[in-house]
């Protein structure tokens, strides 16, 4: 069970235990004075427990190791990551670039699923090229990418560097990855994606670079620079499917420049489809 769950109010924990297996919890949404929502084994449940201010404060304190100053960079971006890799999103009022008066928390529980990328690895063996993982939010892109990183490192035996800007892939605490990302994996946590990727490229001599969630033009620039340096990429992107890639300007650039050659599409039910991007698009 994730450590952060031990800080939930006892009444909520009791209700959760009655209605679901805490070991299978995927998400918990706490909203001030409103009913709590939980997602367990892809099933959404509304619980009777209504979050109080004190609950949100206690959870946030615990999530940041009783040190808001240690997580301030991320809190300004609306989230923080616990030391066992759970991500907590925040809502409230944005003042001076930081969220104050926190009114809601979304706890996403990180759970590595070993072996989920077996098929993807076989595809990479046949076609060891840059690979993009596509899917809707919450469909398991990060889980798949994490396992793929581990397998590229341990089973393919290649050096892979991870630019883990949001601490979701390796969940590093004080610099040490808390989730298994493989023996030959170098992790750079935090920072700006573009800077992190370039630092890894210059200093760690990687054969692969992995990033989670390409969302901006700066991310695309970083991908381009890597691709043209002979490094292969593993990345994820929010998109419902291949067609979305051509609709969204950020991804359209990626497609036009042919940075990725393999595509993995997740269907949201735990299945994925692997295809060569170039052949189909041609």
């Amino acid at each position: 069970m994730a450590e952060i769950l031990e800080h939930l109010p006892p009444a909520l924990m009791e209700e959760l235990r009655r209605k679901a297996d805490p070991a299978c919890l995927e998400e918990i949404h706490l909203r001030l004075h409103r009913r709590t929502e939980a997602v367990s084994s892809r099933k959404i449940m509304m619980l009777d427990y209504r979050a109080r201010e004190m609950d949100l404060r206690t959870l946030l304190e615990a999530a940041t190791g009783y040190s808001l100053y240690a997580a301030q960079e991320y809190l300004r971006q609306g989230f923080c990551t616990t030391r066992d890799g759970c991500r907590i999103g925040l809502t409230g009022t944005v003042t001076d670039g930081a969220i104050r008066d926190v009114s809601g928390l979304n706890i996403r529980i990180a759970r590595p699923v070993f072996g989920v990328a077996d098929r993807a690895l076989e595809a990479l063996r046949r076609s060891p090229e840059s690979t993009l993982i596509l899917g809707r939010p919450g469909c398991g892109k990060t889980t798949l990418l994490r396992d793929l990183i581990r397998q590229v490192s341990d089973r393919l035996g290649e050096r892979i560097a991870v630019a883990d800007t949001r601490f979701e892939l390796a969940a590093a605490y004080l610099g040490v990855p808390q989730l298994d990302v493989g023996e030959r994996t170098d992790v750079l946590s935090g920072g700006e994606r573009e800077d992190s990727v370039m630092m890894l490229l210059r200093t760690m001599n990687p054969q692969w670079i992995a990033v989670d969630e390409i969302t901006s033009a700066a991310d695309v620039r970083a991908m381009e620079r890597c691709a043209y340096c002979g490094v292969r990429l593993l990345a994820t992107a929010h998109a419902a499917g291949r067609a979305d890639l051509h609709r969204r300007p950020v991804y359209r650039t990626l497609m036009e420049r042919r940075i990725f050659r393999n595509l993995i599409e997740l269907d949201g039910r735990g299945n994925y489809r692997i295809s060569g991007l170039e052949e189909v698009d041609d």
Binding site: Y66, S67, Y69, A70, Q72, L174
Partner: peptide, 12 residues
């Protein structure tokens, strides 16, 4: 340590 390393309290 707070200013330069921003260590969380237990580690600090």
């Amino acid at each position: 340590k707070v200013t330069f390393y921003r260590l969380p309290l237990p580690a600090l």
